[in-house]
Design a protein around this nucleic acid. Structure first.
Lengths: 352, 352
DNA sequence: GCCGGTTGCTAAATCGGATTAGCATCGTTA
DNA sequence: TAACGATGCTAATCCGATTTAGCAACCGGC
């Protein structure tokens, strides 16, 4: 069957030294502990010839560090968007020689606790606790027993945990500026939330902050939102209905859709009324979902930087891990990742 | 800081027994090794009070099994489709009390080798090696040193490895039957591949098999494909172009798009020619990408069972692991997972 | 020639469990 | 009553590394 793995003892034997010496050399502490060049070379050569690889399980037992982190989310794996979040985390982890456990809680407390325990049972060095959409969440107790970071979520007041979140407010500002820069002043409607700050689907922190940013920039330019429609969920069908309702009453000049799937619905409704994007109506949106480039005309949108969020979470987590090693506690800093604008074809200067 | 974890020694001390006894009881072998009821209860109670949890790293070192499996793919996280594959694997793993490592190779051999090594260094019990789209692949040597399963891919002849793949041929048959059942006989075109079996984008096993199934069923009904167009890649823009080219020359009655993104492009092209789906042209497709329910009319498609594929891969892997424990080698059986039909609104009986 | 300080390496303990071999104690049986 | 098997538990070893303490050998100085 599969031949036994090469152990450090094998390497030591081959190099004619003690396991201690082999360990010293292979862990790079040979210099420091006065192992001669000659012996060091012999050990290295032996390790090389035998294709020795450290057994991380063993190291984990002895030192307590497994070069492994956990990535727990409510349902990240499912959503294409969040896939990039994992991808970013994965690459940042790889660069540090760390492996990633993943798990989904489906929002169930029992699963959540079980997962966190299972990860701690495997001595993970830290945990990234991610949410699929930006929101405020209650930090599970099992998360506080080791280094951890919140991703795409901020902790309820009680908890002391760093977090990494997209800069949604700035994204809102950017979306509004796109329309202002194109010359829009009137007939600007929001679809998905608004027009008032409290008109958002429940739990959607992103909605609140995007709207905040939008209103801030418009206010500065002395422009007022012509209206807005809340959607119970940010899906194409609701975007479609909201936009149809709007079109029954007025003729907007620009739509700020709260995400791309809503924008898809809006496109369909505009098409029903034979209104052309962007000549008749400009559309800006958020997320940069893949469909943004598939629909025609291609959608101008402010991208959720999922990949960057994932990377950043790993970076921040390693900061926490280091401080933890030194006996320091983690703060509750919130790291904001900026959301890049993707200018495409759905915005134009309003006609006369 | 974080209080030291409770160890078995703590439990033993509290119960007033030796660590050996505690281990016996806690690993469920107390009965078998004649530990009295009374002592068993004491140990169990002590473990309960102290909230003892086994340190899996330690168990892993001693027994060589870590209750952990690896999920390696070329680029799963990126594709929304594959997210469900991970989700299925994740749930099946959870049901068995096993954790999942994930990693992406980006198709690079170096990364791939590094990842597989990193997983073996952590003593994974087995590895699922997944591909984003169904294809034939060369099995990396590092994969053969322990239990492994190919997911959404079949091994090149040389390798002995079980695989789990969607039943693409049957899916092709199903797609053809949908059209036949609706009464279509003439003007059936394929978009993305075909009309001949060898007309497929390179490496796309799915294309070959889908086409195979389509042609088989049509042939049985004595119906011939009116034509087909290959697309260099299965993306909306190519589907759009291929369909436009087709429409320049003929007026098809039904389109079999080789996947949903191509179908999206086809919808757009049909729209350009003011052809209505399904009254003028019926459309069937493959994959059941989320967009299939977003476009209007909703797309009838044969779904890639990603979730089931993920689950199945874990099941098969555990079979291999068990056989491996018993000293048996794994075969190269190919497990086919059936692709369910999603009847929606894009197929109708052809008008006169 | 003895002492103190380097230099270069190794023995042994440790991490947290699993496992094997074995040691008392008790009840039977011849 | 001595031998024997069953019963109930524990000592000791092992998994594969890291780490602490310590041991020889050699060097120079007085």
């Amino acid at each position: 069957m599969s031949p036994r793995r090469v152990t450090m003892a094998d390497v030591a034997r081959r190099a004619g030294v003690s396991p201690t010496t082999a360990s010293l050399v292979l862990s790079g502490r040979g210099r420091e502990l006065r192992i001669s060049q000659a012996v060091e070379q012999r050990v290295l050569a032996a390790a090389d010839e035998l294709e020795y690889r450290r057994n991380i399980v063993s190291v984990g037992l002895r030192t307590g560090t497994t070069r492994t982190i956990g990535f727990v989310s409510d349902t990240v794996a499912t959503s294409r968007l969040a896939g990039d979040m994992i991808k970013g985390a994965l690459e940042a982890a790889r660069e540090r020689g760390v492996m990633l456990f993943i798990g989904e809680t489906e929002g169930e407390v029992d699963l959540e606790r079980g997962l966190l325990q299972a990860m701690h049972d495997r001595q993970v060095d830290g945990i990234i606790f991610a949410s699929m959409f930006t929101r405020t969440l209650k930090v599970p107790p099992a998360l506080t027993s080791g280094p951890a970071v919140l991703l795409n979520a901020v902790p309820k007041p009680a908890a002391e945990l760093p977090s990494v979140v997209p800069d949604e407010t700035e994204a809102g500002r950017a979306a509004a500026r796109i329309l202002l820069d194109a010359g829009h002043r009137d007939g600007i409607h929001t679809i998905g939330a608004g027009p008032r700050v409290r008109d958002v689907p429940p739990g959607a922190l992103a909605g609140v902050e995007r709207l905040d940013g939008i209103r801030e920039v418009l206010a500065q330019a002395k422009v007022e939102l012509a209206g807005g429609r809340v959607c119970p969920d940010w899906l194409p069908e609701y975007g479609y209905e909201a936009t149809r309702h709007l079109l029954e009453h007025e003729r907007p000049r620009a739509l700020i859709c709260l995400n791309d799937r809503i924008a898809l619905g809006a496109y369909q409704a505009l098409d029903d009324y034979a209104l052309k994007v962007p000549t008749d109506v400009s559309v800006v949106s958020f997320d940069d979902h893949p469909i943004a480039t598939w629909i025609r005309p291609k959608l101008t949108t402010v991208a959720l930087p999922h990949y960057e969020l994932g990377r950043k979470a790993v970076d921040v987590l390693f900061g926490v891990i280091e401080r933890h090693r030194d006996g320091a506690a983690a703060g509750r800093e919130s790291h904001r990742v900026s959301m890049p604008v993707r200018i495409r074809e759905s915005v134009a200067t309003p006609g006369a």
